[in-house]
Amino acid sequence: MTDIRILLVDDQALLRMGFRMVLEAEPGFVVVGEASDGVSGVHQAAALRPDVILMDVRMPGMNGIEATRAIVREVPESRVLILTTFDLDEYAFEALRAGASGFLLKDARPAELVAAIGAVASGDAAVSPRVTRQLLELFGSDLPVAGREIGDPLPSGGSGHPAARRGPPHATRLAALTDREHEVLVAIAEGLTNTEIASRLVVSESTVKSHVGRVLTKLQARDRVQAVILAYEAGLVSPTER
């Protein structure tokens, strides 16, 4: 199995050292570089092409949100895991909108850090759709519709669905979804797990998993978290819906 290659981006040298010690003691993990600010982090990401980037939010100069947006655009194969002090705060929300695949508290236990990096490296998200929904309900009231790109870019819209009538650039990819895939996308946006979606649609979990995979592929979403945000920005689900 290939090692998971990790880049550390944080302006606190002691914190980077702590993360490096934890990660390099873990089989299958290798820290390939460090950066002390966002600009350097973007340059290092482009040069090293790591699998996962641990990104601090608050840094001098280019902050972690801006750096994440640049990395998603320039190094799309690298996944960003945001380091934050508070889990349900606006910085975490904006980082997810910028294209991060999850966030982690800076005081997380080593096992949580390792699990989150493993999840992100495998293409999953390190924050559940349900938590993403909570963030949207707290900070999503000003979400623009149809035309706002998540990171760069995740279109929404579709020929037969409400978002489709809002026009480009989102229409094409949502239009590619079947009616069942559209149902699955809405369920994901509501924070439902695969088990809950299977119960709602009266299908097997394996069928739901297949639908989810096709939805992410057609939307070119990096993971379920980005699909949730896309659905909200497309107007398919509102933050106040239950």
Score class of each variant (00 low, 15 high):
residue 137 E to N: 15
residue 71 I to M: 11
residue 72 V to P: 08
residue 82 I to P: 13
residue 96 L to E: 04
residue 108 A to N: 04
residue 136 L to Y: 04
residue 81 L to A: 03
residue 195 T to D: 04
residue 115 A to T: 06
residue 9 V to H: 13
residue 183 E to H: 03
residue 8 L to P: 09
residue 152 D to L: 11
residue 133 R to N: 12
residue 184 V to I: 04
residue 42 V to P: 02
residue 111 A to H: 12
residue 23 L to T: 14
residue 13 A to I: 12
residue 172 T to P: 08
residue 165 R to G: 05
residue 42 V to W: 13
residue 193 T to G: 05
residue 155 P to M: 11
residue 154 L to A: 02
residue 138 L to K: 05
residue 155 P to N: 03
residue 173 R to Q: 08
residue 90 E to T: 05
residue 95 A to G: 13
residue 141 S to K: 14
residue 196 E to T: 03
residue 211 H to C: 00
residue 48 L to K: 13
residue 93 F to W: 01
residue 110 P to E: 01
residue 118 G to R: 04
residue 16 R to K: 07
residue 81 L to D: 06
residue 238 S to W: 09
residue 152 D to Y: 15
residue 200 R to E: 00
residue 53 I to L: 09
residue 198 A to Q: 00
residue 148 R to D: 12
residue 197 I to C: 00
residue 33 G to F: 04
residue 13 A to F: 06
residue 130 R to A: 13
residue 29 F to W: 07
residue 5 R to W: 13
residue 61 G to D: 15
residue 30 V to F: 08
residue 92 A to R: 05
residue 209 K to P: 02
residue 8 L to H: 09
residue 240 T to W: 14
residue 212 V to T: 02
residue 148 R to W: 01
residue 229 I to C: 11
residue 32 V to L: 02
residue 22 V to H: 02
residue 115 A to S: 00
residue 201 L to Q: 00
residue 206 S to N: 03
residue 30 V to S: 06
residue 59 M to T: 12
residue 168 P to D: 07
residue 200 R to Y: 03
residue 185 L to R: 12
residue 41 G to P: 08
residue 144 P to E: 07
residue 117 I to T: 08
residue 124 D to A: 08
residue 233 E to W: 11
residue 77 E to A: 14
residue 76 P to T: 06
residue 143 L to K: 09
residue 129 P to V: 14
residue 200 R to L: 07
residue 64 G to Q: 02
residue 94 E to C: 14
